[in-house]
């Protein structure tokens, strides 16, 4: 509080601006409020806990939920990794990493195995996570039923009653129309055999990694004011039908840098004729493989 007042009194003191905020930006009361929501979320896997999301100095939709969750979990001993689309050097990942460097002055890394907290947008790292690691997902729309029923007042009831018929009908209709479930990312899952949950817009290729993961998985949706979580070693299944089992497919190619045929690939257009090449979306995974060879 004193720090903020200091700023108020020194509006012109530009140099003081960077030092005025609390560790990891959020004030301690806000962090406590968020930690309470996180604990509740961990106790009820997949359940969306409303929280009083703060206005962050970055836009809604750009990871404000993830940033608030990370900020509330950070201690001075943490080592943080931030990825967007699997890569450490995409612009928004760089920007969020710099935010924590500046406001928390903590160590950062690109190595998945060395990070204690990994904040991610749209991917789960290829390398297996371990106990005591935390994976924080940035979530745009936390409600998996939102595209079928946009009103929270309605979806809240559906979750409470486990009334998930509309979701199964949607998947069924996809199959009857196209022979496939037409969802390639943000593919809905069921957590701990109870709540249908949005895994955030990760490709469905990543869905199986959520299941029985030793790490803590936390999900923050800032604009929609929701937090949810998957505790370690929790069952997470992708919705499917017995005769149409879930298929975590990926492009049928190899990475043209490291040669992996197990990782999720980005497609790159290499020349004016539209020739294509495929490379690992997880840049750290790709680099590690190159170093080891």
């Amino acid at each position: 509080m004193n720090n903020v007042l200091k700023f108020k009194n020194n509006k012109t003191d530009v140099a003081a601006q960077d030092e005025i905020y609390n560790f990891a930006y959020l004030d301690e009361n806000t962090k406590r409020m968020i930690r309470r929501a996180l604990i509740k979320a961990l106790c009820i896997p997949g359940y969306q806990v409303p929280f009083s999301s703060r206005e962050m100095p970055m836009p809604y939709g750009w990871g404000t939920g993830g940033v608030q969750v990370t900020s509330s979990c950070l201690t001075t001993d943490d080592v943080i990794k931030v990825i967007d689309q699997g890569a450490d050097d995409t612009t928004n990942a760089v920007s969020i990493r710099n935010f924590f460097k500046k406001t928390a002055n903590i160590e950062t890394t690109e190595k998945t195995s060395q990070a204690s907290i990994i904040q991610t947008r749209h991917r789960i790292p290829e390398e297996k996570l371990k106990e005591k690691q935390i994976l924080v997902y940035q979530v745009p729309i936390p409600e998996p039923l939102a595209f079928l029923e946009p009103r929270y007042q309605e979806t809240k009831k559906m979750h409470a009653l486990s009334e998930y018929g509309i979701m199964h009908v949607k998947l069924y209709e996809d199959i009857t129309k196209n022979g496939h479930i037409e969802t390639a990312y943000a593919y809905p899952v069921k957590t701990n055999d109870r709540y249908i949950m949005d895994p955030s817009p990760i490709p469905k290729f990543d869905n199986p990694k959520m299941n029985n993961n030793p790490a803590i998985q936390l999900f923050g949706a800032g604009r929609e004011q929701r937090i949810y979580a998957i505790p370690p070693y929790t069952e997470v299944t992708s919705l499917d039908f017995e005769d149409y089992p879930f298929d975590p497919s990926k492009a049928p190619h190899k990475c043209s840098i490291c040669g992996s045929n197990e990782s999720f690939l980005d497609e790159i257009i290499t020349d004016d004729d539209g020739n294509r090449s495929f490379i690992c979306s997880d840049t750290n995974y790709c680099n590690q493989r190159m170093e080891n060879n």
Partner: peptide, 25 residues
Amino acid sequence: TGFLEHIKLPHYVDFQAELDLVRKI
């Protein structure tokens, strides 16, 4: 505005997943 403008951010991965699916279909 935040949510609207966030679609400027990279969506390579989601787009890639969609590409694979559309090609298959």
